[in-house]
Design a protein around this nucleic acid. Sequence first.
DNA 1: CTGAAAGCGCTTACAG
DNA 2: CTGAAAGCGCTTACAG
Lengths: 332, 332
Amino acid sequence: MYVSLKDVAARAGVSFQTASKVLNGHSRVASPSTRERILRAAADLGYVPNAMARGLVRQASVTIGVLADDFSDQAVSQFVLAAQRAAASRGHGALISSVHADIDAELAVRKLLEYRVDGILVAAPSLEDEPSLGAALRGPLPVVSINRIHGGGVPLIGSDHAMTGTLAAEHLLGLGHQRIGTVIGPRGRQVVQRRMRGFREALRAAGQPLPERRIVEADWTYDGGWSATHRLLDSDPTITAVFVHNDVMAMGVLKALHERGLRLPADCSVVGCDDLSFAGYLVPALTTVRIPFEETGERAATLLLDRIGGKRIPARDLLPVELVVRESTSSP
Amino acid sequence: MYVSLKDVAARAGVSFQTASKVLNGHSRVASPSTRERILRAAADLGYVPNAMARGLVRQASVTIGVLADDFSDQAVSQFVLAAQRAAASRGHGALISSVHADIDAELAVRKLLEYRVDGILVAAPSLEDEPSLGAALRGPLPVVSINRIHGGGVPLIGSDHAMTGTLAAEHLLGLGHQRIGTVIGPRGRQVVQRRMRGFREALRAAGQPLPERRIVEADWTYDGGWSATHRLLDSDPTITAVFVHNDVMAMGVLKALHERGLRLPADCSVVGCDDLSFAGYLVPALTTVRIPFEETGERAATLLLDRIGGKRIPARDLLPVELVVRESTSSP
DNA sequence: CTGAAAGCGCTTACAG
DNA sequence: CTGAAAGCGCTTACAG
């Protein structure tokens, strides 16, 4: 069905080995005339090399595997797309494997190994404490992750979570807020702990430590943000600003504040995290800390490819985050 | 680096061919005892079959290619994820290839062909009029698409766009609206023409044909929806409802209506299309026609796999859409 | 029940 | 400059 190297060689009147060399661009081989004949035979026949055969002998699939946990999530899909593009621009294919309730991490990794991917990119924050993932990933194959991997040893490419917390705190402090609450993600998560640390330290440095009653935990969802906000205000009604660990929860926070009859941002300021596409379109437009998902994907893929190419790469590389000020924050 | 069939066979004391058969589950072969030895040798050694070698001899990569144009777009990423999962559940890998400004369609398809994917799933609405894509896809390889492909011949799996227009019109008509405007996507697009047709016919059937001045074209973006709305109201200030061709533009529409001092939905109702994750969280919560992206992805992958398996599949399969009524529509 | 042969489509030393 | 050999890791008839 596909034309093979032998077909091309036959038409050009050479051995298929010679055709192989010419088509692979080995210059100092073949006379200009045979070279020309081979090239045109390949074009005439519409020759498309077989990556499986090539991969088999070269012992490299020229493919990276991408292990993602939920890329209907806007953040993850941005990451995966950017990674795929970066890989493509360096000639590598991207094989996607998703992990979710039905499919365990081990199986997903194994699939990737069967295809003999040259390396694996992990974007599976929900699996950061999963020992089986850590175990499956341990081995000689290059791996790079945007989240912590259980057991360690995997280079981490991500954003500076502590700075995220710091930026949010300093912005609100600078506006003159004195009583700031926060709606955080699940406490067990690294990202949550790091953001809390940066946030907490900035507040303490300003002489107003964060009391436990101004911290409420939620589950990254709109509904979670909504109900957390009600709990937060029940626990301390004097709050004038809220730092929320992602934009989706921030929408729920805005809704809840609105229900409480608070004017935004006059009565209560809100800062989110992520800067998803809709953040600027909310009412009020959301002030948020932009997390560079695309840049992270591109960087992670680039480092993975470097690593595959034999270079050494850092064990950790954090990209800077950036505060995007819009309408949801003001002086109290 | 990887253990091979020969390693397993050596440890089990059999030929590698016998090991192959046993590991492939060919039952009526091998005695229980050798069978057992082979299985445990494979387990002990951590044998992972090489999909490239297998693919080479079987002449099937057990992989599908997914060609997408912009999967940072929430709709496309939902589609791709669902397709990937459906493929995985039937044992197929998914190789992603994205097309965008820098990379032409031909090259993206060729990459997929190099990997000898068993079929291709296309999700590239922006390329529906691109002859080079149509040409690159023409051939014996099974292809299924969620958008029209230039030149035809590719089974189309999608949603019922005409019904989308009809549902929106009937909902607004039922509410008692008499002067309804619409913010459409680029006129050249199939999806736009089909939605217009359903919308127009429902209005005509109700005795109130749609005048040109109540139609404005935009580019699917928030800003496009925003400016289109100002143009629409300049052209006919008496409008009491707007049907918008996607949710992102609908956000811009809400914003523009708000700027004009209109109360929503009392002074003007809005119906979107898509039902993206944020639609229910807008203020007012958006009434919209839900497009089943995930179901489409799953169905498209399933049909492609059927096709690869030799079954006949329909040339066209449209999934029903559904009106989701929220707060952005009411009686005028 | 088990093994040896042939071959999938290539690349890469190695000869000539 | 060109070709023949060997081999990548498998599967699948075909013998025994």
